[in-house]
């Protein structure tokens, strides 16, 4: 498939050019280390005062931090840099070049920039999960891991869709460099805590508008064995819905950009 060839070419080149990012790579490792130190210290401070956060143990929270790291690693490797490049290209006017290519512009906008250094976060996430599981409830069976991976992919699709909707707003408001700030602060702050501790109204906002729960909490639940079937099915259904909605919004936004809707 043509789209697949295009994606593969971008990813291959991003990885091939690893040397170009050598300084960034080490920087990425240091940043990730600081990030995990912050998160683990935060957990340790909280668990100084209690031994269960609304049913989540210290080990469960460490698993959650690991899942969060995996999700941020994947987002940071492809989607965040690409969407950043997209916002920049709207501001500079170079987005026009993407529109004149015989490939879907959303696809190009979503994979156009690769930052391999974020893969360190993904690897660290796996290590943290293993550590968390080991100190806690023990390792899940193979089935749970498969479900975990499936839910993680569904969650990523939702988060990606949400980011694309935010990014599409740039077609109306050119100066939108910091729109991803909304996502980053939500994801960075709320994402490292289980969504179940939030009061109902806030959970609804965070869960349905910003699908952090589905990207982090629910996959983590699959690993620590507290997942319900209903949640798993809901996640899959919502992933499809989010992708469709963001696609529709993108097409609508491009129409506006080219003056077709005026």
């Amino acid at each position: 498939m043509h789209a697949f060839t295009v994606i593969r070419t971008y990813l291959r080149l991003g990885l091939l050019n690893f040397v170009q990012y050598r300084a960034d790579f080490f920087l990425g490792v240091v940043n990730a280390a600081i990030q995990f130190a912050i998160q683990l210290l935060a957990i340790s401070i909280v668990f100084n005062q209690t031994d269960s956060l609304k049913g989540w143990s210290r080990a469960d929270l460490i698993v959650l931090v690991g899942v969060h790291a995996i999700v941020s690693g994947i987002l940071g490797t492809v989607f965040s840099p690409s969407i950043g490049a997209f916002l920049e290209s709207i501001r500079l006017g170079t987005f026009d070049f993407l529109l004149t290519k015989p490939v879907d512009a959303q696809l190009l906008a979503s994979v156009q920039s690769v930052a391999p250094q974020s893969l360190t976060s993904l690897l660290a996430g796996i290590v943290i999960i293993v550590y968390g599981l080991q100190t806690g409830s023990g390792f899940p069976g193979f089935g749970s891991v498969v479900i975990f991976v499936g839910l993680l992919i569904a969650g990523l699709m939702m988060v990606y869709s949400f980011m694309m909707v935010l990014a599409s707003l740039a077609f109306w408001f050119v100066k939108l460099d910091n729109i991803m700030n909304i996502f980053n602060t939500m994801f960075g702050n709320a994402g490292t805590w289980p969504i179940t501790i939030f009061p109902g109204w806030l959970r609804v906002t965070l869960t349905f508008i910003i699908p952090i729960a589905f990207a982090v909490t629910i996959p983590a639940q699959a690993l620590i064995g507290s997942l319900t079937l209903a949640n798993a099915l809901l996640t899959a259904a919502l992933a499809v819905l989010f992708v469709a909605a963001s696609r529709w919004f993108w097409l609508f936004a491009v129409k506006h950009y080219t003056g077709a809707s005026a």
Binding site: T5, V6, L13, N17, P102, L108
Partner: peptide
């Protein structure tokens, strides 16, 4: 911006089949 020109050409090759 950051990658060799020839690599950008590779992208064009993929994009334009």
């Amino acid at each position: 911006w950051d990658i060799p020109v020839i690599d950008s050409y590779q992208l064009f090759k993929a994009i334009f089949r």
